[in-house]
Nucleic acid binder design. Structure first.
Length: 210
DNA sequence: TGCCAGGCCCTCTTTAGGGCCTT
């Protein structure tokens, strides 16, 4: 039996909504998920020199003093890039984290090459009955464990990994897709929502004939 | 001075508007 390639589930805490407006990362966490299990973890605060607004400190608990004592961002990002290696990546609302991944790597003179899949898009397709697809709410809706303090990078990355593991399990057990790796996740998240059931059935049948 | 993210997705839509999701 072949093993699925590990997927790197990432979460950033930042000073704002987008690097396009000058926001910088304050903390990064990445967990490697393989065959439904977290097999490795990476977490670090990072120092960029950017000021953390008070409301962000209230949200995350990360203070200016905490990041002042953290290693420089370019060192952290080099280490993060080594940790991820050639793995594909997943985040909860990947449009947010993928931009910070690319921007913070660029500050360290590293080009981002990884693909991203998004657990928000996947959750909306697989669990349309959920009232909310925010990370905390969908984790509660599915009865998954809380991993620690919400809005800290490692806890949120672990919860997103639990969600991803559940998505992969449901793709196998409910939809009959034997190896729901990154390519399947990427295809499903791009599928128009009204066509999701048809896409899943076709993918199951294609997999069964291979 | 005025502006201030942006992609997804639903609907009382498509010549548009607004909520969701991330910090």
């Amino acid at each position: 039996m072949s093993r699925n390639e590990p997927i790197a589930v990432i979460d950033f805490e930042t000073t704002g909504m987008t690097p396009a407006q000058g926001a910088r990362a304050t903390e990064i966490a990445i967990v490697l998920l393989q065959d439904g299990q977290i097999v490795d973890r990476f977490q670090s605060l990072m120092r960029t020199g950017a000021r953390i607004p008070a409301f962000i400190t209230q949200l995350t608990g990360i203070t200016n003093a905490m990041v002042a004592g953290a290693p420089p961002a370019h060192d952290v990002m080099r280490e993060a890039a080594r940790f991820v290696g050639g793995a594909q990546m997943v985040a909860h609302n990947a449009s947010f984290d993928s931009k910070f991944w690319a921007a913070e790597l660029a500050h360290a003179d590293i080009r981002a090459t990884q693909g991203f899949a998004c657990t928000v898009l996947l959750s909306r397709r697989l669990y349309p009955q959920a009232r909310s697809h925010s990370l905390g709410n969908i984790v509660d809706h599915l009865g998954l464990p809380r991993a620690g303090r919400a809005h800290r990078a490692l806890a949120d990355a672990e919860m997103a990994a639990f969600l991803l593991a559940r998505i992969q399990r449901d793709l196998r057990e409910t939809w009959g897709i034997e190896e729901p790796g990154f390519e399947v996740l990427n295809g499903l998240q791009r599928c128009a929502r009204p066509a999701v059931a048809r896409w899943l059935a076709r993918h199951r049948d294609l997999g069964a004939t291979q």
